[in-house]
């Protein structure tokens, strides 16, 4: 833990040290915009919002990994499915976005459940190895992405409601009611998931299964049922995350795939296999990505998030909340 505390000031120093150089390079532009402090606060706020969306999608990915050790490369497509299903219900079927989003969540949960029942459970029963299953997830990702492409096309789209909004003025920073709602709902859902994991019977069983599969079975836990719950939950959360991501940015056929790397970064950063780690790590990734655009081109956002990942792992190889196994 002690090492980890050093990291925050280290990154801060790094960023500030780099700031003047780029500011000078941009010349006069800087003077006309809002002050640096205000821009930094705004970027932080945007980062929290982005982090919330990554977190809500990454939790499912993390729970799946924790309970089954499957690295699900197709998790991003669950995100896209959520966004795209809501899009069609919203635009083609004319449903209000809130209704469309709720249905999209149900469908996302259903897709998660079907994948577990129809694909992963049978493969596991046949004793297919983890590496092979991982390759299957890559193929599945490609397949789903291109099916989505056929229906959705390459053109970026937006939802009918809440597209353009005026920001609420909060002093130096602003946030639209839409984005504020998204952050609040996301954080609410994350707290809900945490409470479920911590307080309920099924939640404890999920943690037990992540801790020791054989012992979970030996305790009478029906492992397949618990994993099904995890997939259903993960699919639903990915779908709502997709709708939020589509709302704050734009809906595209490969939006989930673009988010996937950041989800993985968040999970690894927070500590593989702990759902709370995934939440914390995702926020770090979101904030670093947004803050980096204060100094660097926005296209490099993700690269900075990954750099933060590498830095954290160098200092704390098990991730922020990951625990080293007690040896012996």
């Amino acid at each position: 833990m002690r090492n980890f505390r050093l990291l925050v000031p280290l990154l801060a120093v790094l960023f500030v040290a780099l700031a003047p150089g780029t500011a000078a390079a941009q010349g006069d532009e800087v003077v006309t915009g809002p002050g640096f402090g205000a821009r930094a606060l705004q970027a932080l706020l945007d980062g929290v919002q982005f982090g919330a969306i990554i977190a809500i999608t990454a939790v499912g990915l993390s729970l799946v990994f924790g309970t089954t050790h499957l690295i699900n490369f197709a998790h991003g497509e669950l995100v896209t499915i959520g966004a795209v299903v809501a899009f069609f219900l919203n635009i083609s079927a004319g449903l209000h976005l809130v209704v469309a989003a709720l249905i999209a969540v149900l469908i996302g949960a259903l897709v998660g459940a079907i994948l577990q029942l129809g694909l992963w459970a049978p493969l596991r029963r046949r004793g297919v190895g983890m590496i092979n299953m991982f390759i299957v997830t890559i193929g599945l990702s490609l397949l789903l992405r291109h099916v989505i492409l056929i229906f959705f096309g390459t053109r970026p789209q937006s939802y009918r409601e809440y597209d353009i909004q005026r920001a609420i003025d909060l002093g130096p920073v602003g946030i639209t009611p839409r984005d504020l709602t998204i952050v609040l709902i996301s954080v609410g859902l994350l707290v809900g998931v945490a409470l479920m994991l911590q307080k309920t019977r099924i939640g404890t069983a999920i943690r037990a299964l992540s801790s020791n599969r054989d012992l979970a079975e030996a305790s009478g836990i029906d492992v397949n049922r618990v994993v099904l719950v995890v997939w259903t939950l993960g699919g639903g959360l990915a779908a709502i995350g997709g709708v939020f991501f589509g709302l704050t940015e734009i809906i595209t056929w490969d939006m989930g795939f673009r988010l996937l790397l950041l989800m993985f970064a968040g999970i690894i950063l927070g500590g593989l296999g702990t759902a709370y780690g995934a939440m914390v790590g995702s926020f770090v990734v979101g904030i670093v990505a947004q803050m980096s655009s204060l100094w660097f081109p926005i296209d490099l956002q993700n690269a900075w998030a990954l750099l933060a990942l590498i830095l954290v792992l160098l200092i704390r190889p098990q991730g922020i909340l990951g625990q080293r196994e007690r040896v012996g």
Binding site: A208, S210, S211, N212, L215, A216, A218, E325, R326
Partner: peptide, 10 residues
């Protein structure tokens, strides 16, 4: 079981 007989994270 002989080894890993508890849920270590619980």
């Amino acid at each position: 079981p002989q080894r890993q007989n508890v849920f270590a994270t619980l």
